[in-house]
């Protein structure tokens, strides 16, 4: 067995062993079943919630919120980031504001976002977009500023227009950093959507986790947590795939 296969086996066996240990610990009362439940009990609840369509409903609505908010945040982040990175006047105007507001924990903005955007879907999109936009801007700016000078020289030597410098040089040149930013902000999106849904929503994974805990339906809460993890893993895999397709020249 070569190292690669061993790694693959390990990546399956380790989580399985952890689940087994959890189950055993729960059954032998090493851990408190009342609060930690057991994988088998959670799985049973998972099946029930899957069959009733409840789980799918919450997952899809969260996914939709993430997708829309993430897209808004990424697109505007790339546009702003390119402008800040390439145009000194824009940088002078925006960089201080961006730097000053970036460290504000985005979760803390939730009440404000709800006041501005209301209790509906718009506030969910907004909070995710806000969380994403900063990371994408910062990575895009850094990506643009670290483009090898030679590519900019080529662009200038061939008298590429400003638009073409954006679309053909700066954007693809910064793409590896942009995608890295997107990957980080995907994690942030998940945190924000779960928080936002637990604050003001009638559906979604965050709502599921929050309300089931409120009425102490422990297994359901764990199913919600599990679903959040699955959602995170799937979205990360999606971005990994996107990275391979969009920047084939950067083989990691």
């Amino acid at each position: 067995m070569n190292a690669k296969m061993l790694n693959r086996v390990l990546s399956v066996v380790t989580p399985a062993l952890l689940l087994l240990a959890w189950e055993v610990a729960s059954r032998t009362q090493i851990i408190d079943f009342r609060f930690f439940s057991a994988p088998s009990a959670i799985f049973k609840e998972f099946v029930v919630m899957l069959e009733s369509g409840e789980l799918l409903k919450h997952t899809l609505i969260s996914l939709q919120r993430i997708f829309i908010g993430f897209t808004i945040g990424t697109v505007s982040g790339v546009v702003i980031g390119l402008a800040v990175g390439l145009i000194p006047a824009v940088s002078a105007a925006l960089k201080p504001i961006i730097d000053a507001t970036f460290p504000i924990p985005k979760v803390g903005l939730l009440p404000l976002v709800i006041i501005i955007f209301g209790l509906g879907e718009a506030s969910k999109y907004a909070i995710i977009a806000i969380g994403v936009v900063y990371l994408v801007i910062i990575n895009t700016v850094s990506g643009v500023r670290h483009i090898e000078r030679i590519y900019l020289d080529v662009g200038r030597n061939y008298h590429a227009s400003r638009l073409m410098m954006f679309t053909d040089v700066a954007l693809p040149g910064a793409l590896p950093m942009i995608i890295a930013g997107m990957k980080i902000s995907m994690g942030v999106s998940l945190i924000l959507i779960v928080s936002a849904e637990s604050l003001a929503a009638k559906s979604g994974i965050g709502y599921l986790i929050w309300t089931t805990w409120q009425v102490f339906e422990v297994e359901k809460m764990y199913v919600g947590l599990f679903m959040a993890a699955v959602l995170g893993a799937c979205l990360t895999a999606l971005l990994d795939w996107l990275e391979r397709v969009m920047i084939p020249w950067k083989r990691v």
Partner: peptide
């Protein structure tokens, strides 16, 4: 200009690289 360093854009295929000036 033909540069000493690698100056072809890694994100463009051969044809688009060669046609860069024409596009500009």
């Amino acid at each position: 200009m033909v540069f000493q360093q690698e100056s072809v854009f890694p994100w463009k295929n051969v044809r688009d690289n060669a046609a860069f000036g024409l596009k500009a």
